[in-house]
């Protein structure tokens, strides 16, 4: 590479990084700045908005509920998806395409559209079973499917489950033992990835909760914002940092140890599945 072209390239890279760095970091910095403002422009900096988070009962309740939803969704996702995917790989390879298609299907159905179709179901559940907010996890399990599927699929592709399960079965293990004591321990990283992604999606979910009249974290942040912008922005920053931490753990440490296909980052989608998030 010629010297002048290398200089030009470096100049281009530095310009892009500074320009986009500013675009992405200024709003986050501005949130910090906003959340530490006093009552007037000249008032001294205060952490009042931050301490207010824990004094706002609605917020504490919403945070608790959203964390519960995240846990229920992750566990439900594992119980439903992992045995199915293992079973399909071992016994029903012909169904693989169908399962993959169904798992990636939620990406082509916008949340705002799905909520219209699922509302009658929720109406029925609320009348006949329970009106607890935790029933939101039914639909959350659907919207985390594409992300979880990709994470688990990468994990399953990296280990030879056929040989493993055959070995375990020939030693007298039942299917439960094969799942819990052979397959799960061998793909713990992929399971962790799938769970972290599910947690991040559930904590950021707004559309279903708002339109089905439930108050999860995002909806509560919206309500609090009408009363105290500072507090709601403080919670936003806190939840953002939480999501950052989760996904940073994922992308820095949660890499599959063994790879057959080169995988860049866990969050990078395959050709079939775009990561359209819950915006």
């Amino acid at each position: 590479m010629s010297r002048s072209r290398r200089v030009k390239l470096q100049a281009f890279r530095v310009t892009i990084f500074i320009l986009l760095g500013a675009f992405f970091l200024v709003p986050i910095g501005a949130m910090f700045e906003f959340s530490t403002r006093g009552n007037s422009v000249t008032a001294p900096r205060t952490m009042e908005a931050w301490t207010n988070i824990f004094q706002t009962a609605d917020l504490v309740k919403a945070i608790t509920v959203s964390l519960e939803l995240a846990v229920i969704t992750s566990v439900g996702m594992l119980v439903l998806l992992l045995p199915t995917m293992v079973w399909v790989r071992l016994r029903l390879p012909r169904v693989h395409r169908i399962v993959e298609f169904l798992c990636l299907l939620p990406l082509t159905i916008p949340a705002i559209a799905l909520v219209v179709g699922i509302a009658p179901l929720y109406h029925w559940i609320e009348i006949n079973l329970t009106d607890s907010i935790l029933i939101l996890s039914f639909v959350y399990l659907i919207i985390v499917l594409p992300y979880s599927y990709r994470a688990l699929d990468a994990g399953l592709a990296a280990i030879d489950i056929k040989t493993m399960s055959e070995a375990a079965r020939s030693l007298g293990a039942g299917w439960g033992t094969v799942m819990l004591r052979v397959i799960v321990p061998n793909m713990s990283t992929a399971i962790l990835n799938a769970c972290l992604l599910s947690v991040a999606v559930v904590l950021g979910e707004f559309t279903f909760a708002q339109l089905l009249y439930f108050e999860n974290l995002q909806v509560a942040i919206g309500y609090v914002g009408l009363v105290s912008a500072g507090t709601s922005i403080a919670v936003s920053v806190a939840s953002l940092i939480f999501a950052f931490t989760l996904l940073m753990i994922l992308s820095f440490f949660g890499r599959p140890r063994l790879r057959i296909a080169p995988i860049e980052e866990t969050v990078i989608p395959g050709p079939l599945g775009p990561p359209i998030g819950p915006k």
């Binding site: 950021g204 936003s236 992308s251």
Partner: peptide, 30 residues
């Protein structure tokens, strides 16, 4: 950059709205 993008591509909704209100809202930082 790739990790941050993984996070920010998922970033949306109320939180993102507030980030911009804090930035270019009528009393925003910028």
């Amino acid at each position: 950059v790739t990790s941050m993008s993984g996070v920010l591509a998922q970033f949306g909704g109320v939180t993102l709205a507030f980030a911009f209100i804090a930035t270019i809202g009528n009393v925003g930082f910028v």
